[in-house]
């Protein structure tokens, strides 16, 4: 599987946020997107996911076969928000996303164990701390199988140990042939990742 962007441009509310972005990612590769606030990192991820229209250039995915015909169907999108319901328990949240996303991978309990949250799956999501919420959202990446992970500041609010554990998860994902695009300000511990530095459009 390959993900290719050529001369990609994105806009928000009719105003160009970035333009001329290009990258090509093979199986097992990662792209770390850095840049100052307002440089368009989140917009780039949303454009890649297909939540915002491609304003210029091309974005294509090759070798996704019938399972993953488009980027949207091949990706896990982890945005700023965790996409979990406060009133439901952590396990209920994860089970729902597992059923909805299809392509089952780990069970909700196994995924929670992997991110170090075993034993609190029965609590309502609203009771968790910020870091625990983020870890539960990361567990969401593990309950169904997707080759492409789009991560928007994935480690915001995580402690050092969790950061390390998440770095391991990402390396494992790449090792299994997955692709990662992460927008971040913090080092993620991904060696050999391509870097993309975004600046403001003049």
């Amino acid at each position: 599987m390959r993900l290719i962007a050529e001369n990609l441009g994105g806009e928000r509310g009719g105003e160009a946020v970035f333009s001329g972005i290009g990258f090509a990612l093979e199986k097992g590769q990662a792209l770390i997107v850095t840049g100052p606030n307002g440089a368009g990192k989140s917009t780039l991820l949303r454009v890649v996911a297909g939540l915002l229209p491609v304003a210029a250039g091309r974005l294509l995915i090759e070798g996704g076969h019938a399972d993953f015909p488009s980027v949207a169907s091949a990706c896990h999108y982890l945005g700023h928000q965790n996409a979990m319901k406060m009133a439901l328990s952590v396990v209920e949240n994860l089970r729902f996303w597992r059923d909805f996303a299809g392509a089952d991978f780990l069970s909700a309990e196994e995924a929670l164990e992997t991110v170090g949250l075993d034993g609190i799956g029965h609590l309502p999501f609203g009771y968790l701390s910020t870091g625990q919420r983020r870890r539960a959202a990361i567990a969401k990446l593990l309950v169904s199988r997707r080759p492409l992970w789009l991560l928007d500041e994935p480690t915001a609010g995580l402690d050092k140990a969790s950061e390390g554990r998440f770095g391991e998860l990402m390396r494992k994902h790449c090792g299994e042939g997955g692709i990662i695009i992460a927008a971040t300000h913090l080092p993620l511990g991904l060696e050999g990742a391509q870097a993309l530095v975004m600046g403001r459009v003049e």
Partner: peptide
């Protein structure tokens, strides 16, 4: 929309 679920529901368009 507020908790970000809507993005994922929209992204699920190819499956559902």
């Amino acid at each position: 929309r507020e908790d970000g679920s809507l993005d994922l529901l929209v992204l699920g368009n190819d499956r559902h």
